[in-house]
Design a protein around this nucleic acid. Structure first.
Lengths: 225, 225
DNA sequence: ATATTTCTTGACCATATGGTAAAAATTTGG
DNA sequence: CCAAATTTTTACCATATGGTCAAGAAATAT
């Protein structure tokens, strides 16, 4: 089993190669290829050789950049988590609730659209029981939720939001936005769309935003007089 | 690759063993074990031998019941899809919108709680690009959504619901309910709960129900006079 | 009880898989 | 241009993996 934990902090995506060098470029190529494969197969299902092929190099060559499959997975995970959590936007107590929510949802949706593999990798990892990021979830993410959640509590204290446990509010936002990345194959099948990006995302963003604002009962602080 | 499709209809879970016989019981044991393993590792990541061990028998013995890994996966998938779709409840146009929604959400939540592996198996399959159930999604599920969606359209025509594309309404319901099964490891990590079933599900059910009813703008047909 | 069907086992197989080592090729700094 | 460092390839290896086969053990029916 690979139930080892990674550091619970988000390190910079720094690698040991100097920017622009051959090593650096290949390093990135491998990470990109790995993200694609891991996002479809998960850790156990992914094949090292498939990743190497996708990165356009031989397996031993790829293993020169990442010594083991687990190392590679951890590296991908770090990148992906960093991307995922740095998407807070202006989450400040003083702004208009509906504005803040709209911005956050928009940002999340944009991320789902731009880096669907990132979302899927995290989803697969969590569905698998979070063997690698479990520690991070218990520490880093937990703290994040507690911190950002104060904004919701503030709004609720001001009567600008229904009494909803902040953590659950986040679960709901994440679920509704990430579903468009994670379950793309289902959604595009049901909707029978040609171009997911133009036919689904814009409409979905507006829809999810509206429903969440209404569902959370977000009120304006300065009623349009 | 295993990009073969299964029948797009949901067959009865009938097997070739007569009920209660040794064969029947073992058949079920294998299916149960397979569901657990597939739900954590996905198709490619699952190991035939691990499933056999979990079912308490040798690998060749298990392969006596299901000739190949793919056969087994298909069988599990069929069971799981049947379970998942037969959870419609009273989805009838004449009932109270809020009632219908509350019932559907409750049923979905109950399923997520009772058969979390089922939810995860579907999630993994879809995240993997629906290689096996793609055809079913394009035909069976698409038809289901179109059919059941008429209820939402009816409500909207009567002014009892905000104008929301029915399919998206379903995506939202599924996302918010299934997230509690699929992402259990994340949610329990963030909430730091001991007993997920009692500390999370009841509260989540009420929360999701309320938010969706409010978010969809469901009105009562017979206002409480 | 015995013949027959059903189930289980152990030995086995071809291939896949993650990973290694050392030589060869390439790039880079001086 | 040359030596040193970096990158890539070739040939391997041990083990894991999905699956087969024939013989043996149980159960079942007669």
């Amino acid at each position: 089993m690979y139930t080892q934990q990674m550091a619970s902090s988000i390190d910079a995506p720094a690698n040991r190669f100097k920017a622009g060098s051959l090593g650096d470029r290949n390093h990135r190529k491998v990470l990109a290829a790995a993200a694609k494969v891991f996002s479809r197969k998960g850790y156990t299902g992914a094949r090292v050789d498939e990743i190497a092929q996708l990165a356009g190099m031989s397996k031993p060559n790829m293993l020169y950049y990442f010594k083991t499959k687990l190392d590679l997975y951890r590296a991908v995970m770090e990148d992906v988590l960093a991307l995922w959590l740095n998407s807070i936007g202006d989450f400040c107590k003083e702004s208009e609730p509906a504005e803040v929510m709209a911005q956050y949802v928009a940002k999340k949706m944009q991320l789902s659209q731009q880096y669907p593999e990132a979302s899927r990798i995290i989803a697969m990892e969590i569905i698998s029981g979070s063997p690698i990021i479990g520690d991070y979830l218990r520490k880093g993410l937990r703290a994040w939720v507690e911190d950002k959640g104060t904004v919701f509590l503030q709004w609720q204290a001001e009567g600008l939001m229904e009494p909803i446990e902040p953590a659950h509010a986040f679960f709901m936002i994440w679920a509704t936005t990430q579903t468009y990345a994670d379950f793309e194959s289902q959604i595009s099948a049901v909707l029978a769309v040609d171009d997911y990006d133009v036919e689904v995302y814009p409409a979905a963003t507006k829809l999810v935003t509206d429903i969440l604002i209404r569902g959370f009962g977000l009120k304006s602080r300065t009623p349009t007089s």
